[in-house]
């Protein structure tokens, strides 16, 4: 589409020029904004490294906790409650199981060992008063087992 005479007339009108003094101002502002960005990023990086060092004083500790909990204190509180419930359940379960074990335990070998120890202790303390029955050994067979058999069974 070729421009008509009216369009050409409009095109011939020179537009206003940008004021000369804007150049230095705008370029200075643009560069200053970049420098400010770099400074801000450095400050943020510095601030991010701070909390560990700041734990020494009470005020800064509070600030650190606030910052730590700030995004969602309710979520943190909920998490703490869940952990407490888990801990309580865990403790209840372990005490119950230990008492059950105590009830079920006392096996025979332990009893035997205990009685041996008690006997040994009594023997050491007072040999005379020791009254625990001594197990009687079985009499050993005196002859061959075939002697005890009746002639009808042979």
């Amino acid at each position: 589409m070729k421009p008509d005479e009216f369009e050409k007339q409009l095109q011939r009108q020179p537009l206003r020029a940008v004021p000369d003094h804007w150049r230095a101002e705008i370029l200075r502002e643009a560069k200053a904004s970049v420098a400010a960005d770099v400074r801000r990023r450095t400050d943020e990086a510095h601030a991010a490294a701070q909390p560990i060092r700041l734990l020494t004083s009470a005020g800064t500790t509070q600030a650190w906790w606030r910052e730590w909990l700030w995004p969602s204190p309710q979520a943190w509180a909920g998490l703490a409650v869940v952990w407490l419930i888990i801990l309580a359940l865990n403790m209840t379960g372990s005490s119950r199981s230990s008492s059950d074990m105590a009830k079920q335990a006392t096996p025979v070998p332990v009893d035997a060992g205990l009685s041996t120890q008690r006997r040994e202790l009594a023997r050491l303390l007072d040999k005379d008063n020791f009254s625990e029955p001594v197990p009687v050994p079985k009499p050993a067979p005196t002859g061959p087992r075939s002697e005890g058999l009746s002639p009808s069974k042979v």
Binding site: R16, W22, L27, E29, A30, S33
Partner: peptide
């Protein structure tokens, strides 16, 4: 500058937008 002046019809606004463009760049 000429384009922005025609769009905004205001020299101060033109200055602001021109500066904003160069800051973005």
């Amino acid at each position: 500058f000429a384009f922005l002046l025609n769009v905004t019809r205001n020299e101060a606004d033109t200055r602001d937008v021109l500066q904003e463009v160069f800051i973005k760049l």
